[in-house]
Each structure stands twice: as structure tokens, then as C-alpha cells.
Amino acid sequence: MSHRHYSIGDTDIEKLNVHLLYVSLSKYEKDWSSLLHTHEFTELFFVANGSGSFRFRDESRPIKTGDLVIIPPYLEHTEQSSPEDPLEYYSLGIGGVTFLPEDQQKGPQIFCNIEHRSFFAELFDQMLYEIRNNKYGADKICQNFLEIVILRLIRAQHLVPVPIRSGHMSKECAQIKSYLDANYSKHITLDTLAEMTHMNKYYMAHSFTRYTGLSPIQYLNQRRLENACTLLKDTDHSISNIAVSTGFSSQSYFTQIFRKKYGVTPMKYRQTHSRKQDS
């Protein structure tokens, strides 16, 4: 018989003041639209399968299975999938902390071709499982998994955690924002969002407006209009098709909202900004 005994000592690691806002798993499909956007919180982006690129306003970097991206608050970004090797990825919204490399004073995006990728993939998968099933203690389990992920990343990538003020977006508002960003083309009402967050819809709308400066419906229309502008500039799709694909109930309503926002009709905007005419 052999026996090894290891004692656990106290460390001087300061307690991480972090909280999990959401967990999601996304997979590339043909209706995928990639738009630059920002978050008021840190996001972890882990590629479970596939390949593509991660784009910022001024640069683009290739990504593949096992890569992990740490996106600090307010950094514009989006992902683009390879059609031949579709992206599938986990996203974690994290409040309370961001990260800097030990040898840098500023921390833009951090790319990690991480070791032990199966270990991280299992942790992300377990968090998603707990959130989906929402059984007793799910939030605590996910919080503990999150701290394990962060500590392993700090250790492996030589990162310094930097506290950020927590007076930003609540967990529920972050959930709404993430949902609107991903599902703007669907039919969405205040009742949809209230049911999803288990909040009174009037309190929910007030809270979201306080954090973002826009009501949920105003924010939804803004996301739809941003995507419509991209389609008007980069495609030959008809105005009616663009209206439908971006979630507007009719072409006339789309034109009305578009003119109010940009001062011109969608057709006039296309004539002025179309990239296809320049090619």
C-alpha cells in the first residue's frame, strides 16, 4: 500500500470579485450576420469547433478550435466563420473584472492558444448544462467553475486581474442585450424579454433604459438598422427582403424608421453608400 498526503495551505491570492452574467453556445448557420458591437463587461470567447476570424475595428485575427479570446469592456468586435469549417463557440459574460498582460499597461484583446483545451471545454460545457437545467445550486456551481477558469487563465497566460466598477449592467440587462444582439431578426416584444428574465416588464424596460440609454425596443431597432445598413451597402437584396431579414414587420415601417434615423430612405442610402458600385 502506498499513501501520499498533501496539505493545503492558505495563499495570498485576493478574492476575485467576479460574477457570471451569462453563458451561451452558438454555431454558425447561413443566416449569420457579423456586426461590430461592444459590451459594458468582459467577455470570454472560446472556440469549441471550427475556424474563422475575430475582427476588431482596425484588425482581424484568425481563430480556430481551442482558441480563447478575452474581450475587455467597450472594445468593438465581431466574429466571422469560415463557411467550409463552421464556427461553434462558447461566450461568457463576466462582470467585475478585466485583465491585463503582466508586461503591458494596456490590455486590448488577448488571444490565447491555450493548453489543456479539453479541460476548458469541459468547464464551459458544465456551466452551460447547469444554466440550462437551472437546478438547485446551479448559480453557485457556475460561479465556482468561472473562478476556476479565470485562475487557470491568470496562471497560464500571466494575466493581472483588474477590478472594474460594478455599477454597470445588471445580470438581467446583460442577458437582454445579449439576446437582442443575437436574435434581432426575430419577432421580439417586451413580454418576450420579461418572460425570459422573469422580471416585471415595466421594471425590466426601465432598468434596461437606465443602463443603456435606450429602451429595449429602441435598442432592438438600432441593431436592426445597423445590420440593414450593412446589407444595403454590401448586397443586392431588395429593400423588402432586407426589411424582413432584419426583423421589421413591413417594408413601409422599415422605411419610416430608417428615414427617421438617417434622414434618407433605404434606397437613397444604398445609392450613396453601396460598395458594390465601387467594385
Rank of each mutant, 00 (worst) to 15 (best):
I176H: 04
H206I: 11
I94F: 07
I114Q: 04
F99P: 02
M169T: 13
K177M: 14
P161I: 06
H187C: 07
S252G: 05
I164C: 02
H206P: 03
S170C: 09
N200E: 15
F41A: 02
F119M: 10
S238E: 08
Y6K: 09
D234H: 10
S7L: 11
T42M: 08
S279C: 03
Q256A: 09
H5Y: 11
T192P: 01
L44G: 06
R4A: 13
Q126G: 02
Y202G: 09
G263M: 13
H77I: 11
D58F: 07
A156T: 12
R270P: 04
E43A: 15
Y179C: 04
L21T: 13
L151C: 02
K260I: 02
L87V: 14
L128F: 11
F254S: 10
F99V: 02
M199I: 09
L20I: 06
R224N: 01
I141F: 10
F120P: 03
F208V: 13
S82M: 07
V244K: 04
S178R: 13
R117F: 00
N133T: 14
S207K: 15
H37N: 11
T230L: 07
Q104T: 12
S178V: 03
K27Y: 00
D181P: 02
M127G: 11
V18P: 06
S215W: 13
Y219K: 03
D85K: 14
V244A: 12
G167K: 11
Y89R: 03
N221H: 15
L92S: 09
F41C: 07
H116Y: 07
M199P: 02
L87Q: 10
T212I: 01
M267K: 05
D236F: 13
S178C: 03
S245W: 04
Y90D: 08
Y219W: 07
H19D: 02
D139W: 00
F99E: 09
E79M: 12
A205C: 12
Y22V: 00
Q271H: 09
P163E: 14
S82F: 04
V162H: 00
F46A: 06
N221T: 08
I131W: 08
M127K: 05
Y179H: 14
K268M: 11
S274W: 00
Q105P: 03
L159H: 00
K268T: 15
H198N: 06
S60N: 08
I8A: 07
N17K: 13
D125V: 00
N200T: 12
S240L: 00
I13P: 02
S53D: 06
A228D: 06
Y219E: 01
L123D: 01
S7P: 00
D10M: 10
T246A: 09
V162L: 01
F111G: 04
E84S: 14
V18I: 15
H3D: 14
P163V: 14
A156C: 05
T246Y: 03
K140L: 10
V160G: 01
E172A: 13
H158P: 01
L25W: 05
I131N: 07
I141A: 08
